[in-house]
Design a protein around this nucleic acid. Sequence first.
DNA 1: TTGATATAGATTAAATTAATATATATTGCA
DNA 2: TGCAATATATATTAATTTAATCTATATCAA
Lengths: 150, 150
Amino acid sequence: MKLVTQIRFGIRILLDLAMHQHDGVVQMTDIATRQKTSLKYLEQLVRPFKEAGFVTSRRGRNGGYCLARSPQKITLAEIIRVFEKGDAPDESGPDMKDSGYSEYQDILIREAWDEARQAFYNRLEKVSLSDLSADTTKKLWGNSDLLIFI
Amino acid sequence: MKLVTQIRFGIRILLDLAMHQHDGVVQMTDIATRQKTSLKYLEQLVRPFKEAGFVTSRRGRNGGYCLARSPQKITLAEIIRVFEKGDAPDESGPDMKDSGYSEYQDILIREAWDEARQAFYNRLEKVSLSDLSADTTKKLWGNSDLLIFI
DNA sequence: TTGATATAGATTAAATTAATATATATTGCA
DNA sequence: TGCAATATATATTAATTTAATCTATATCAA
């Protein structure tokens, strides 16, 4: 239930890509500079996004990353799920073979927990990358309906 | 987002107390035996419940713990909140003094996160200790409407 | 061919969680 | 009265997870 920096910076990377789409590919060096953090750390965070198909990349000179889908179609729920490990609902819980009531109660507890987590993700499903970046431009440039990107 | 054993055993303790209310106070030794775990670990987990007013205790010979409220009135949401540290919504986030857009986006991210967490807890608010223990007795003794506790 | 970039994996450091240990304070009971 | 059973408090160790860095390699464009 903690918003760890892994997730925070993961979202930051995708937001940065979203806000620089018009530049074509974006180099991690630039993102690291803008976000004032280590290149190596970001590289390690962007890899799962690559594997999950959120971003595409080009190697070599003038290489870089860009979003594989439009920012409207990428939700916070999907992003955060990328970093979830070892707590999937299907995770093999206690075995009911030699179970006492404690083991059965663990199952009830997990059921409740999984439903609550579902509610958590349902809420995040409603927020897309473009929601966040739109709010940000509004904050940066004022509430103008006419925004021209140079 | 992970169901850690701290929380799992925390709930187990309260459930154990709920299911042995008719015995008066319950000793942690007995719970440790029933739950097949270390007394010392459980003692450490029950303390926050004491501080939060979920249980009362009696020292000395024939001492022990018992629930301070009826199991219908204790929800999973409250229980789990007891173990939440360092991630309160009011936690002092990034300071907007010298902020660039990244810091502003962090705030947006946190807002979304906090709303999702709220949804999480709202769901757990609906499950009480007695819900869990009722389901357990049903499992143990069959779906009988007449249950006589000896 | 060279420099800029992504990719991969290993490594170290810090923080959190899990579990145990030691010592003390209370209380009931024989 | 004093002993044994219990809770309380704090400290310690071990395991796991998260954060961040380092080193080496593959690929591409100029």
